[in-house]
Simulated scan of single mutants.
Amino acid sequence: MGQLEGKAAIVTGSSRGIGAEAAKLLAAEGAAVVVNYRQKAPRANKVVAGIEAAGGRAVAVGADLTSPEGPAALVDAALESFGTLDVLVLNASGGMETGVGDDYALKLNRDAQVNMLTAAAEHMKPGSRVVFVTSHQAHFINTVPTMPEYEPVARSKRAGEDALRARIPQLEEKGITLVVVSGDMIEGTVTATLLDRANPGTIEARREEAGRLYSVEEFAAEVARMALADVPTGHTEYVGGADYLSA
């Protein structure tokens, strides 16, 4: 019996990368998981198939979190498929993609996070946990400069974190805790790849500065662990990047 047996989780942006790995780990602890994707249904279905092959339960749900109906679609899927919602992992983020509007980063990294939390919290029971996934580059943006190419995204993610933290008093009234997981640059993520493409050598330079960078699997394990960790609401779990912590 896993620690999440009988519980259900939504992991946003979980058709690949950190979200997909976190979804698998939560399922391994017994959680039934809503695997969220925006466009890549085959990827999400593959994640679901892997969870089911390992004896878990999962469902793939396409939803654009920046749309008015996106967050509700995920909550409805959890309740209709599994009858409960106990863990919300806010992993989806972006803003460096081509062909998106100038305000897309704020829409996704701030507004959509708040809308997703609002939709989910209405149905989460006391003892439930919300995990917001961010980066050191965003979390520390007000005190530690980041690359110009990433600064708008970093500031939008910091705005999202601040907006979520502002909801802690209301969440406490419901018995729901909010935890933030902040990580250094992660090897193999889309963001790291795009940054390295925009500024060649970025990943190698950061690896030399930090000593080592976490892999997607290693960071996802920390995200999944914080869904269960005995920590107070508002806690920030730092993963890698010791130089940020001493700045």
Rank of each mutant, 00 (worst) to 15 (best):
A72I: 05
A73H: 04
A73D: 12
A73F: 08
L74M: 07
A78M: 15
L79H: 10
E80Y: 02
E80P: 03
E80L: 06
S81C: 13
S81F: 00
F82P: 09
G83A: 01
G83F: 06
G83S: 07
T84H: 08
D86M: 07
D86K: 11
D86F: 11
D86H: 15
V87K: 06
V87T: 12
L88H: 05
V89M: 09
N91Y: 06
A92N: 03
S93K: 07
S93N: 12
G94M: 02
G94Y: 00
G95S: 01
M96N: 11
E97P: 05
T98P: 14
T98W: 14
G99C: 00
V100H: 03
V100F: 05
G101A: 07
D102Y: 11
D103H: 07
Y104K: 01
Y104L: 06
Y104W: 12
Y104A: 02
A105G: 10
L106Y: 06
K107V: 02
N109A: 08
N109R: 10
Q113R: 09
N115L: 09
L117R: 02
L117V: 10
L117Y: 09
A120Q: 11
M124P: 12
K125Q: 11
P126G: 02
P126H: 03
G127Q: 15
G127V: 12
S128E: 13
S128L: 01
S128F: 03
V130K: 07
V131K: 03
V131Y: 04
F132N: 15
V133W: 09
T134N: 08
S135W: 01
S135C: 05
H136A: 12
H136V: 14
Q137F: 02
A138Y: 05
H139G: 03
H139S: 09
H139C: 02
I141T: 14
P145Q: 15
T146G: 15
T146W: 04
T146H: 14
T146N: 11
M147W: 07
M147G: 00
E149L: 13
Y150E: 11
Y150C: 00
Y150M: 10
Y150F: 13
E151K: 04
V153P: 01
A154K: 07
R158Y: 02
R158G: 03
A159V: 02
A159H: 04
